Simulated scan of single mutants.
Amino acid sequence: MFSHIVLGTNDLKAATVFYDQVMATLGYARHDTGDTYAGYGKATDIGSGQNCLWINMPLDGKPATIGNGTNIALLAEDRQAVDAFHAAAMDQGGQDEGAPGLRSEVHPHFYAAYCRDPDGHKLVIVCHKVFSDAGD
């Protein structure tokens, strides 16, 4: 359904420090950087523009803002990746919006954590997989 996601930033340097760390917990890296943007994803996807997260200074020159009621949900392969993302976000100055855990009101296997990035964008990291004692 989605090609890519773009989040605005007012401080590209601070944003890249944050996203370099949190995206690594999901197996993604920054593969493209310019004066006003940074692109995260798999090396094979970044050139296509698909399955990527872009952090950009707004093209119109106005300050970046956040959307009230907006969140970006990123998939994690397992619950440990959710935990690692949230921990990395807190280590990089992110704001806690909900510690890792099950949100059974969403569905029985919705394991997620919520945080805000340095610009205030709300991020959700989620694993939908069924948990077993043998692992995720």
Score class of each variant (00 low, 15 high):
Ala113Val: 01
Leu74Phe: 12
Ala134Gly: 14
Asn68Gln: 11
Trp54Thr: 07
Ala87Ile: 08
Thr65Asp: 01
Asp119Gln: 15
Tyr37Ile: 10
Asp117Tyr: 02
Ala112His: 09
Ile46Tyr: 02
Asn51Glu: 13
Asp11Ser: 02
Asn56Lys: 05
Asp60Ile: 10
Lys13Thr: 04
Gly98Asp: 04
His4Asn: 10
Ile125Arg: 02
Asp119Glu: 15
Asp117Gln: 09
Phe2Glu: 07
Asp117Pro: 08
Gly41Thr: 05
Tyr28Phe: 09
Met23Glu: 01
Gly39Arg: 07
Ala73Asn: 14
Leu74Lys: 07
Val22Ile: 08
Phe85Lys: 11
Glu97Met: 13
Lys129Pro: 11
Thr16Met: 07
His128Cys: 12
Asp133Pro: 14
Tyr19His: 05
Leu53Arg: 00
Gly98Cys: 04
Met1Trp: 01
Gly101Val: 07
Asp11Gln: 04
Asp45Met: 13
Glu97Lys: 13
Asn51Gly: 10
Val82Lys: 07
Gln92Leu: 06
Ile5Gly: 02
Phe131Ser: 06
Val22Pro: 00
Ala64Tyr: 03
Gly8Gln: 03
Thr16Pro: 03
Gly93Thr: 12
Leu7Glu: 04
Arg103Thr: 05
Asp60Gly: 09
Gly47Tyr: 11
Pro63Ile: 00
Tyr19Arg: 04
Gly98Thr: 01
Ile72Ala: 14
Lys62Arg: 05
Ala88Tyr: 04
Arg116Ala: 08
Met23Cys: 04
Phe131Val: 02
Asp117Ser: 07
Lys42Ala: 14
Val124Phe: 09
Asp136Ser: 10
Ala89Glu: 03
His4Tyr: 07
Gln50Asp: 05
